[in-house]
Amino acid sequence: MEMSYQLRTLRKKREVDSIIRDTIDKLLVLRFGRSSNPLCLQLDDILSKSAREVSKFATIALVDIDSEDIQVYVKYFDITLIPSTVFFFNAHHMKMDSGSADHTKWVGAFHEKQDFIDVVEAIYRGAMKGKLIVSCPLPPEQIPKFQLLYKDV
């Protein structure tokens, strides 16, 4: 065990490919974003703090969307807002119904560490039961309303 969890940052398509393929029986959490963004930093802080706690059933990695090699994935997952978090289980994309328009990813940061852990546990439970989509365990006020805010501004 390492002393502290330094989250892995992926900058190559090959790395992303292999981590999706090789994470077996564990939830893979991929954060798409850039570390210069303050909201990304907030999310990264939560991720790195909870990485050890969820280490038995989840792997967390960061994806740098500014890398040239990654653009394929940015387009593929339709990353328009950062940070966006995408979940995988045994190389399957896991969706989550959080009441927002986009079920394929979680947009924005989490309010606190426990929120993130709850989401990860819910998706893991669903994935173990063979589901491809789970509903968000968080109360609606703790889900960031990104799309709406964006349109208002």
Binding site: M1, M3, R52, E53, K56, F57, E121, M128
Partner: peptide, 13 residues
């Protein structure tokens, strides 16, 4: 002595 690390959570279910 090294600081105690938080224990990882158990796998759900």
């Amino acid at each position: 002595p090294p600081a105690k690390q938080p224990k990882p959570l158990p796998v759900p279910d």
